[in-house]
Amino acid sequence: MENKNRQKNSFDWRSLIAGTAGGVASTAVFHPLELIKIRWQVYEAASLKKLKFLDNPSKDKLGQLAPSYRPKYRGLFDTVLSVYKNENGIRGLYRGLGINTLASGSAWGLYFLVYNGLKARHDKKLTISNYTLDATIAGVSIILVTNPLFLIKTRMCLQYSEIDKDVGGKVVKYKNTLEALRTIVRNEGFLGLYTGFIPGLFGTLNGTIQMVSYDLMKSWWTNYFHEDLNTVHFSTFSGLSKIIAVVCTYPFQLVRARLQDQHQNYKNFFDVLAKTYRNERIYGFYKGLIPCLVRVTPAASLTFIVYENLLNFLKTL
């Protein structure tokens, strides 16, 4: 009995392995959509062309917002073609894959480790407040560790082959992930690795909403239908929970990406909010939402399918 209680109150290494595997698998498959999403999140030019309700929308204003060397995209499909044509074909679409795999794999693995560890400490049936608090603590803990990795991932995804290394004295292009790390620390200090941390904290609501929704769906299904869950359930519940989470928290993801964009100079979180709303209105906060949903819905399903099945297998060992 004592041994069982000790196991119940400890963090389970199997969650770490299964979560990491799920994150790596989904990243490897869907990375090109992540790159396209980030490109659109920071693409200031698109909104002003579409916002007919803005007072006197000006092409000059548009030019002042977007760096002159930033590629011009007419739509999502055009973005894919542009990256493929101008940035070394398929390699361009997988720019930043290595650091994204490391960031996403470690984030998912650590998240499941902490989240499941916290849930295991409850002696009674979990309530919505238990799920919410545990998921939030896990999310905040993980972003403290992984924010530098996701910052570098964003910087690598915003590499444009057409530009030189230095534009106006500011480094905007890196040879590889290690150089990006060294350059950020040298030019922006250690705290530069935590650029975008504040919207990232708000963005942890994404994980909270997703995990609470996912666990509640699983709990409801098993209690109502009295049957074991399978891959179809994992896929459906994780996809639905991710859609709910993204729609609720997407503006924070966009603000974080813009703060981390090496081609712009926003002062802080509130500067991004003010400029984005002034120049692009509410639409600006949801740019890239479609490729985001196209990416994260199947990616979440794949992550949880791998996670749940591998975790169940590891428990049999």
Rank of each mutant, 00 (worst) to 15 (best):
N5L: 15
R6H: 12
Q7Y: 05
K8D: 13
N9C: 07
F11M: 11
R14W: 03
A18V: 03
G19L: 05
T20M: 11
G22F: 08
G23C: 12
V24I: 15
L35Y: 07
I36F: 01
R39M: 04
L51Q: 12
L51G: 03
P57F: 06
D60E: 15
L65A: 12
P67R: 14
F77K: 09
V83W: 02
E87T: 09
N88T: 13
G92Y: 04
W108Y: 13
Y111K: 07
L113W: 11
R121E: 06
S129I: 09
N130W: 01
T132D: 03
D134L: 04
A135T: 07
A135R: 04
P148S: 07
L151R: 00
T154Q: 06
C157D: 10
Q159P: 01
Y160F: 14
K165Q: 15
V167S: 07
K170Q: 14
V171K: 14
K173I: 01
T177E: 13
G192Q: 03
I198A: 12
I198Q: 07
P199M: 06
G200R: 02
G207S: 08
T222D: 01
L229F: 03
H233L: 05
I244H: 04
V246H: 06
Y250W: 12
P251G: 06
L254P: 00
V255N: 02
L259G: 00
Q264W: 05
N265P: 04
F270Y: 05
L273M: 11
E280Y: 00
Y283N: 11
Y283F: 12
K287H: 06
L289G: 00
C292P: 03
T297S: 08
L310V: 12
